[in-house]
Nucleic acid binder design. Sequence first.
RNA 1: GUAGGUAUAGCUCAGUUGGUUAGAGCACCAGAUUGUGGUUCUGGGGGUCGUGGGUUCGAGCCCCAUUACUUACCCCA
Length: 472
Amino acid sequence: MKPSIPRGTRDFGPAEMQKRQFILNIIRKNFELFGYQAIETPAMENISTLTGKYGEEGDQLIFKILNSRIHENKNKDLLKKEFDLSLESSRNSEELTEKALRYDLTVPFARFVVMNQHQLSFPFKRYQIQPVWRADRPQKGRYREFYQCDADVIGSDSLVNELELISLMDKCFSELNVQITLKVNNRKILAGMAEVVGAADRMMDIAVAIDKIDKIGPNGVHKELSDKGFTLEQIQLLFSAFFIQTTDFKDFEPLANIKEKLNYLKEESKYKGSLVFQKGIEELEYIMYNSNVSHLKFELDISLARGLNYYTGTIFEVKANAGTFTPSILGGGRYDDLTGIFGLPNMSGVGISFGVDRIYDVMEELNLFPENISKTASCKLLFSHFDLETQNHSLALAAQLRTNNISCEVYPDITKKLGKQFDYANKKNIPFVCTVGSNEITSGEYSVKNMQSGEQEKMTLSLLLERLKKGQ
RNA sequence: GUAGGUAUAGCUCAGUUGGUUAGAGCACCAGAUUGUGGUUCUGGGGGUCGUGGGUUCGAGCCCCAUUACUUACCCCA
């Protein structure tokens, strides 16, 4: 049988793991630096926990788990009926499936908060670094299993949380050495537009269409909106707001300029009468004017929508500035009532999610990993030997090195061929090889070879320890 | 769901208008060198050309089907 893994999933070898850990360590360190605490939730959730939170498209991409022991279910007629029904529509049948793999970390977090509300003290700040699964068609930068690194604050509607999250990502990407642009928008602006246009319940339709303006252009958006049944008047009204963005807001601009645009939207646009719209603008203003960032570029983009249903306020999206491959590598936003569905209303939360796998891909393309990262040796020294006696002696020496916190290993097989053992050390980038033969055992002086310089020297164990401790 | 591309050694790929026994580099094993790797030289093992059918005197190459992988759209980290 030919071994294989499901498409869209990957194995990570030692070289890749070095790089992944590099990214994860920076993110984790900063999460903790900003006061977030780690939690974990199960890979699978009850299907009802997940559905209805991500929008129609998202719900389709949830990996469902077939009920186990389905053959033991006595009601075969019902099972067959449910199966036939599920062939025709995407509805979930509890008879067939009641669990699913998590689609993101935010919804399981909301569930966690509701279930543990009496143990937690609010505002609660948590971080979570775990894989999620999406039944997508894989392609470049898109996997069916990938890691998200989430930081969320729940139980506080202060915009200071947004400011903190922005400086958190600023710091992370600065340490990762990735040049990025942060796009910010506010769902209230979109909601206000939908309201003024007279289609408050169709905010997501409008948002998704408008979001595409960079890709398909104004005509494309016009067509998509009219296909969805919006009238010419409605479309023109919508365009009056975001057209400003497409012509003038395209690239990073000085703060003064952004200010001018925001003032226009607030005081002169056709939306100035909408309270929600005004609130959205005010929130955006606060964030734009109070953020203290040193690394990232800001971009106000009122066409930014994001597909997830649960966002209600600020929304974030980050892309790398350089390279040909620039998917979004971070997303996030504020959700005012995600816990409400589970019975805990008035819990506003805001969070961001780093896409490690895409950050990896971007850094790989741009060559941003530190130079020697995958050449890092697994350990400091290898003991080579000739027979059972010298191997045993090596094991004893290894134990002493480890007592002194020096990583080392003993060649596991017994062979007269030193070349093979040196080759092993060479391939694993082990910087020193200590050869233990019967001569060495009697004299107490071991041959230690520096694999980089090729120099070899005889020394006692205590001298060896001293040298290795000094990092020589 | 829609539309393309690819499939030849463990890996990356050549393979001419269809024509003897299908090649290279890397990797692997052995020797030159029985106590020394990374350099060099010599030799060696490795392939049902994704699978099934068709055209042909003859198919790795052409046609059809199928599977896997991959890219783009949709959507998203």
